[in-house]
Design a protein around this nucleic acid. Structure first.
Lengths: 350, 350
DNA sequence: TTGTACGCGTTATCAA
DNA sequence: TTGATAACGCGTACAA
């Protein structure tokens, strides 16, 4: 019944040529209403759907977008994927998910995908990309956008990581904290460079400098983007002779580790220790962690929009779109007048 | 350089026919070593990669698997997607992500995808599927597996929802709790039926019955799978004249809502109120919530494995694979001898 | 307005 | 062992 009918079957059934069927399918103007009806009837009767493979062979477009993303590393990426998925869906494309866990995998996608013509466009998330790869992509005429990553030859959407970190640090200083600890994310997690870490450190230092505070390397630690590592780094910071009275973590997940550490060490939050995260993932909201919110929806939506524009107009020059973060005050920093319960006893068990 | 070279270009450069090139490509035995070298050299020189579209046109396989999943509803689904992605990757397939948010979208995928031949197989997650759809799929010869869903005509991987709920309830009863509340998940969230909810209720009732306890409808509520709804349901339960001393929630996310509710009402956890979740997502571990752990990895890995088997051998009969859950004791139920801090003050802010 | 023939890039068949 | 040629299913000039 519905199995493999081709355009020929429809043509035969309707008593016309395949050209006519094709014209009806792509609703070309030049087809007599009467024959159009006949063809439509035949199509309906056979439940005919044109084969998208054959279609994309001749049209040179697959109707799919590739999303290259370090899917396992951070909840933040999943929230981006959510937003990206939604945007791709609205643009009537399919989404092919390429997870990258290491450099080899990333390079594999970057070098092979362009030549294979399996996707009409590529959306790369949080992954840096070499100029040589960019050159290959351009040569293969495969449109690309970078989300949460930057390359001058490719349309990139980034948040102001430096500004966000500056904002966080500044906020803590202005709320009376004297010694601000900073737990940065690893630049080289899983062998791929997250350049975001650099910018956040720079923002941290700038705020310090502006407030006339010396940068104390003892107050800065680097951990991978996990809760456990964030916790370990926090414990190091807090068990020093002169511990910080506030800690800014480069991600919300690390911040949860800091909360845990504070708990175990009996530090009251936020009285003894204020904590600020970065990303603005759901978990931060759930746990009441103050954070620098990234405009996840906006960034993703705009990214796919730009990708679509590049697909329509291949000669469009690359853009750098820099979005602002905003600070969300929650229980780990705000000295709210009357909390219904004491946060001092901590947020996280074990 | 690398743009669009075809097999003909390679053939010309190597001074052979395209048939020979094709044979080299698919390393057919019948090709003289010398010519193979020539062809290989030409391939390398041109950076030639066979066009997968043309390939799949004649081979009748795309190298992609479709994953239909309610991506936005619950963290549980994301953890399944993670495991499924990993399994698909290892099987050297690509993963096309189809998110379904409502019935129309689900039906759209179910009715159109089979005919389009865009994927070699389908993995459906947590979504019930009608027999008519199954019939269409079989007719289109598209292999399918269901994960966390069941249909007798399709290979299905499910956990023992009834057994898990039974286990949870039983555990609470055996730990001295007299009145067990149950917050079930909505059967009809987003208009698609999660039949899992039925089984969990059945397990709850069976445990009660076995222990000779009357089923009290006042102790059962149904909420959607969100934290907010779980909280609201818990508040209803806890503010009754005879409130429960333990609550079993049909999902971990709902359980977090229960924890919140307990906090606000000043109930000590687990002394005044024990709480048990279901799913075993990371969040439950993070928050120390006891739960019925689903074998997420195992279920996903096995599911993709079965899907691959069905693709190799289309006549393989459908299987029902039922995996066991296991109970994970954490802070919301266990009366551990010495906690480093008091959980009574609660886990979650706001 | 409509039908025919060609091409998309590959695999597979079949002579040679 | 190899090369020519026919599919695969569709879109589209071009001719009618």
């Amino acid at each position: 019944m519905s199995m493999k009918h081709t355009i020929h079957d429809v043509a035969k059934l309707a008593g016309v040529g395949i050209g006519t069927v094709s014209r009806v399918l792509n609703n070309h103007p030049n087809v007599k209403p009467a024959t159009r009806e006949k063809v439509l009837a035949a199509i309906a009767q056979l439940h005919f759907k044109p084969n998208p493979i054959a279609r994309s062979m001749i049209l040179r477009r697959t109707g799919a977008l590739g999303v290259i993303i370090p899917f396992f590393t951070r909840p933040f990426h999943i929230e981006i994927l959510r937003a990206v998925q939604s945007a791709i869906d609205q643009a009537s494309y399919e989404l092919i998910l390429y997870n990258v866990e290491n450099n080899a995998q990333r390079d594999h996608y970057f070098t092979d995908l362009p030549m294979l013509h399996k996707v009409d466009g590529l959306c790369v998330i949080s992954l840096p990309i070499d100029d040589t790869v960019v050159f290959d992509l351009q040569h293969a005429k495969l449109p690309v956008v970078l989300i949460d990553a930057y390359n001058s030859h490719v349309t990139s959407l980034v948040v102001d990581n430096l500004g966000g970190a500056y904002q966080a640090t500044r906020y803590l200083l202005e709320h009376g904290h004297k010694r601000i600890g900073f737990i940065n994310g690893l630049l080289n997690e899983g062998n791929f460079k997250f350049s975001q870490a650099n910018d956040r450190l720079a923002g941290f230092r700038r705020a310090l400098a502006e407030c006339g505070i010396d940068y104390d390397p003892q107050l800065v630690r680097t951990s991978d983007w996990s809760r456990q590592s964030g916790k370990a780094a926090a414990i190091q910071l807090l068990t020093q002779p002169e511990p910080p009275d506030a800690i800014f973590a480069a991600s919300d997940v690390q911040a949860t580790g800091v909360v845990e550490a504070a708990r175990e060490l009996g530090r009251a939050i936020p009285r003894d220790l204020a904590i600020m995260g970065f990303d603005g993932i759901e978990l931060a909201e759930l746990l009441g962690i103050s954070t620098i919110q990234q405009p996840i929806q906006e960034m993703s939506r705009l990214g796919i929009q730009k990708l679509c524009e590049h697909m329509v107009n291949p000669d469009m020059p690359p853009e750098l779109i820099r979005l602002s973060t905003y600070l969300v005050e929650r229980q780990t920093t705000a000295q709210l007048p009357s909390l219904p319960y004491s946060l001092d006893s901590g947020i996280l068990p074990t």
